[in-house]
């Protein structure tokens, strides 16, 4: 079955190699092609160190591919742009700014007047559930709250695509579970195209419209799954468990 919607982001034969200190080429990403469609929640799922972050950096425009290209709405991607917001694994909040300062950083960079950007920022702070913490510094927040602020900051520069690099990877299991539910709620309230990287199968199945499976180094796409379960999903729903079993077997045939 083909996913619906217009293509917003395209990767064609994307590859990236690094030169090791000993001088040999180390291929992290090998020939990856896929499309991202408008307003879909796409999860890139793969094992441990399989080049997912490298892939995301290429999509963000923070790094240049050794082969192939990235295209956004028909335009080639060379540099970072506010149209592609990123939420990182560990917090990348500016520690010297308050939550408000961080969230309004994007609009402020574009020269939007103070009153207006404050209003925008406040809307997203409320949306992610940080009302009352506007004046807190990042080091006064818990890990989950820091990621909420990170999500609000990414949303606030009004991106067409949100790139999320294992945003909940460093949280404890309980908080992680809660944040997954929260992200889905936020996403349903403010629909954006999301490209979410994770190595946690439950997280992938809970959030995704579509899952792309990546193999280990060099990373290539090995399979694609459509997830058509009704939202919000249930971790113990038989269909959920069935799909989970299928993907787990795909990644590791011995199981």
């Amino acid at each position: 079955m083909e996913p619906a919607g217009n293509i917003i982001l395209r990767c064609e034969h994307l590859s990236r190699s690094f030169t090791t200190p000993s001088g040999t080429d180390y291929r992290v990403l090998g020939d990856v092609s896929f499309d991202v469609r408008e307003n879909e929640f796409l999860v890139l799922f793969g094992p441990g160190q399989c080049g997912k972050t490298t892939l995301l950096n290429l999509l963000a425009g923070l790094d240049q591919p050794t082969g192939g290209f990235v295209e956004m709405q028909g335009e080639p991607v060379h540099a970072p742009s506010p149209s592609r917001g990123v939420v990182y694994q560990t917090t990348s909040l500016f520690p010297w700014l308050t939550v408000m300062g961080n969230v309004e950083f994007g609009p402020a960079s574009r020269g939007i007047p103070k009153a207006e950007r404050r209003k925008q920022a406040q809307y997203f702070i409320d949306l992610v559930g940080l009302k009352g913490f506007e004046k807190s510094y990042p080091n006064q927040l818990s890990g989950g709250m820091q990621q909420r602020a990170g999500i609000a900051r990414a949303y606030c520069s009004d991106p067409s695509v949100l790139l999320m690099d294992e945003p909940f990877g460093h949280l404890d299991a309980q908080t992680r579970y809660m944040m997954e539910q929260e992200l889905e709620r936020i996403w349903r309230a403010e629909k954006r195209t999301v490209l979410f990287v994770t190595n946690n199968i439950e997280e992938a199945l809970y959030l995704a419209d579509r899952i792309i499976l990546l193999t280990n180094c060099p990373s290539v796409i090995c399979k694609e799954y459509m997830v058509n379960l009704p939202r919000p999903r249930n971790y113990v729903d038989p269909a959920f468990l069935q799909l989970r079993k299928e993907i787990t077997r795909e990644m590791d045939p011995t199981q």
Binding site: A60, L62, A79, P80, S81, P82, R84, G85, V86, Y88, T90, S92, F94, P95, W96, F105, G106, S109, R110, R153, S157
Partner: peptide, 25 residues
Amino acid sequence: PKLIGAARMLGASRRRVFTHVIFPS
């Protein structure tokens, strides 16, 4: 470098990266 990346992502100009990221940090 992640903070510089984040600022560029949010549309900060080179100058703004300097005054709002490199200097305060």
